[in-house]
Design a protein around this nucleic acid. Sequence first.
DNA 1: ATTAGCTACTATGTTTTACTATGTAGCAGT
DNA 2: ACTGCTACATAGTAAAACATAGTAGCTAAT
Lengths: 109, 109
Amino acid sequence: MKISTEMLKGVLEGIVLQIISEGETYGYEITKNLNDHGFEDVVEGTVYTILMRLEKQQLVTVEKKKSSLGPARKFYQLNDAGQQRLTLFWKHWTFLTAQMDHLKEDHHV
Amino acid sequence: MKISTEMLKGVLEGIVLQIISEGETYGYEITKNLNDHGFEDVVEGTVYTILMRLEKQQLVTVEKKKSSLGPARKFYQLNDAGQQRLTLFWKHWTFLTAQMDHLKEDHHV
DNA sequence: ATTAGCTACTATGTTTTACTATGTAGCAGT
DNA sequence: ACTGCTACATAGTAAAACATAGTAGCTAAT
């Protein structure tokens, strides 16, 4: 299923943070990961802009490593600020889903 | 709690659709409703732009009625297209939350 | 009657975010 | 040499929610 672009806004950054938190990874891999796990239409360009944003906000550390396959990869890792941001993201997400659940239930009451 | 602006994008329109589907209502009331139910920081301007959008997309019918209290109100009701859109919205939302749940779980596995 | 305060809708401009589209470049296998 | 996959980068666009301001009706107190 295709998730509407707008519904991803503000969520995708959190998703990327979560993926990075699960272990050092790089842009291309993240994109594949997303595409294979329900976010079919997220393209490289989108992921790279998010990664740049994260770097700019100093939520991640970056390390360039040579690859055995193709050009060098930029590996990302969460730093403390990134971890905190991720925690905050899940907090917001949990709150939002709770509100949405109420809204949905009310309809049937 | 304050939900980040960006996280609301693409969701708020669905929320407004849901609220309208629960019974004829108008902009000002919708805003109050939102503010009282977890969406504290949504302002009138935002709601009215959404309502205009819904009207433009012909998802709602509009009826102006005099109020005993203040100026006339524009009452909104979902039409068939609006109902379909709402159903689609919940479908997308459910799918997204499912993906997010997987993502969250994977972390702890 | 005039002001203040709540109700109610409208309009303009800004910011953020994801997408489209395109380009660059390394390396492997044929 | 050429194709295809890997990998990163970026300029431009569109959509959505926001801030802000304005218009206007009605009620009640002064």
